[in-house]
């Protein structure tokens, strides 16, 4: 029974990874790619690690997989913040289809203060 739940969770995780990777290829600019990739791939990998817990039960490997989920969660979100901020400061423009940009003014103000 536990094995079947584990394989179902594993399949769901790989399906979400697939969506994330399709988004990485299809979407038009860096920011949108990061959106799709971070969210889908993080939840997919969390699901894969959770399936490990169902497969082995609360033994050594299951507890380690829970720790890996917590670490992966914080690591992925913080890396996404850092990447999107770095990309903006580097000067990569938002895509053609974007509508508003409130960050532009704040960013210019910051640059003047640094000088």
């Amino acid at each position: 029974m536990n094995n079947i739940i584990a394989v179902i969770l594993l399949s769901i995780g790989i399906l979400f990874n697939l969506f994330g990777c399709i988004g990485l290829i299809r979407l038009p600019d860096v920011y949108n790619r990061l959106q799709s990739a971070t969210k889908c791939v993080t939840l997919g990998t969390c699901s894969i690690l959770l399936s490990l817990l169902f497969f082995f039960g609360f033994k050594e490997i299951g507890i380690k997989s829970i720790l890996a989920i917590i670490m992966l969660f914080f690591a992925a979100t913080v890396a996404a913040h850092a990447l999107v901020r770095g990309a903006y400061i580097f000067g990569i423009k938002l895509g053609d289809r974007s509508v508003v940009d409130h960050y532009k003014n704040a960013n210019e103000k910051n640059k003047e203060e640094e000088k």
């Binding site: 790619r33 971070t38 580097f90």
Partner: peptide, 26 residues
């Protein structure tokens, strides 16, 4: 096309490798 795209690719590649490790452990 830009350097940031490549870095997004590297970041996601790292997370996918963790998934591979989990399946191999299984």
């Amino acid at each position: 096309p830009t350097i940031a795209d490549r870095m997004v690719g590297i970041d996601i590649f790292g997370i996918l490798v963790v998934g591979i490790c989990a399946i191999i452990a299984m």
